[in-house]
Design a binder for these strands. Structure first.
Lengths: 107, 107
DNA sequence: CAGAATCCTGGAAGATACTG
DNA sequence: CAGTATCTTCCAGGATTCTG
């Protein structure tokens, strides 16, 4: 069972964890890595045209540090780096899916 | 039925809607209005000690403009203003609940 | 009580150029 | 290809004071 539901405890406990999702592009990136998708850096760049390289890396690195994405480096020329969700990251799916439904429901 | 699932459409469609949740305090406020809770301005202030008046109003007004909270004014002295979720706002519950679960699951 | 009106600052985000 | 390294801009957020 989850702990007893009180607004205060919910707000307090969640507040920190939600920081993981903070950042202009985090959720957008997440949607592109859903369902076990594996994407190269350049693929993410193309998929999100409005983002700059700096922002893309920055957000990816933070997500990596927070343990929701994995970075796989292939030492070859030219370089190849793949990103995918960690198990912990995958567990976000239900939540993001619910958000997606909500978003679609608006139109 | 929801539309066909593609990362691109998901990201695009959701991107705008998620702006509704942007802002340092939006989610915290939402958690305090969950389950049909009705709160006065001063109650929210007490419930979220770290927030400033300006921020509280600002975020509430944005949420009101976005159609997820309602503002009820009682013309009396002293003034009394109540906030509650709209139906549309209530539909966020499943999503936020999933986030809550995810957050709690971390520890 | 529930705001409005100012002023101000840190840091997130962007632009651009360079590199192993 | 997948990054670094700087420089710059911008505004969300905060502090403070005032008011119907």
């Amino acid at each position: 069972m989850t702990k007893k539901w009180t607004p205060a405890s919910a707000a307090d406990g969640v507040e920190q964890v939600l920081k993981i999702l903070e950042g202009k592009w985090k959720l957008v990136i997440l949607f592109h890595l859903f369902g076990g998708q594996v994407k190269r850096f350049s693929e993410l760049e193309k998929a999100i045209p409005a983002i700059t390289q700096k922002m893309l890396i920055q957000q990816l690195r933070q997500m990596e540090a927070d343990g929701i994405v994995t970075r796989t480096i292939y030492h070859q020329v030219p370089p190849k780096v793949e990103y995918r969700l960690t198990d912990w990251g995958q567990e976000l799916c239900p939540a993001l899916d619910a958000l997606l439904k909500w978003a679609e429901n608006q139109k």
